[in-house]
Amino acid sequence: MSLDVEEVRRIAELARLRLSAAEEARFASQLSEIVDYIDQLSAFSAGAAPSDDSEPEGTDDANDVPAEGRPLLDDFLDNAPASLDRFLLVPQVKATPGGAE
């Protein structure tokens, strides 16, 4: 199947990406070719095989317990683009009046 520019833009929005007009046109053409190639999967039969979700031998569902001895908060905040006290700072959720959104 082919993906047109509108479809590419819609999927990009779902993925929180904005593309330039040139990127949209290029991606529509490249992704159409790739999806065409992927469409050959319909010619293959998986028979009665289960979906591939097998875990490696020797693994077990680990108990979900808090790890100890990992004082990562400072390191975490050191990596933050902006922080205040012990919190991440981000732009306000609602756009400023007159803003682009």
């Binding site: 929180r16 990406l17 306000q92 959104e101």
Partner: peptide, 11 residues
């Protein structure tokens, strides 16, 4: 200037 915009623009 907004959270949504930050996600999209940064990515």
């Amino acid at each position: 200037r907004s959270l949504q915009r930050m996600y999209t623009d940064s990515r």
